[in-house]
């Protein structure tokens, strides 16, 4: 079973690589933000898979932290400042 799970992880990593290439090919900031979002979700999925494959419960905590702080990062990127630009 572990071999199957690991194969899925490899495919997810491949999707990660391709979405990174798409991100690099985009010029607009919002498109890049979207790509970052997809990369983040892929990262969480890979961590969850690795947690099972490697029998490391601590990776679940890492996934939780990633999910929670992802909102903070997006919020900081998209919020406007009063009076100033962006």
């Amino acid at each position: 079973m572990n071999t199957v799970l690991l194969a899925v992880v490899v495919v997810l990593a491949l999707v990660l690589l391709i979405s990174l290439l798409i991100m690099l090919s985009r010029t607009r900031l919002t498109d890049r933000l979207l790509a970052v979002q997809l990369l983040g979700t892929l990262g969480v999925a890979i961590l969850l898979m690795l947690a099972v494959v490697m029998q490391q419960r601590a990776f679940l905590d890492t996934a939780l932290v990633l999910v929670l702080l992802a909102v903070v990062v997006t919020a900081v990127f998209t919020h406007r400042q009063r009076g100033g630009k962006s």
């Binding site: 990262g43 990776f59 890492t62």
Partner: peptide, 21 residues
């Protein structure tokens, strides 16, 4: 930021959950 994310995955792969976190 994405670099940080992928680096966390790499640390996880290297059996270093503390650094990954």
């Amino acid at each position: 930021i994405v670099f940080g994310l992928v680096l966390a995955l790499v640390w996880a792969r290297l059996h270093a959950p503390d650094i990954a976190l």
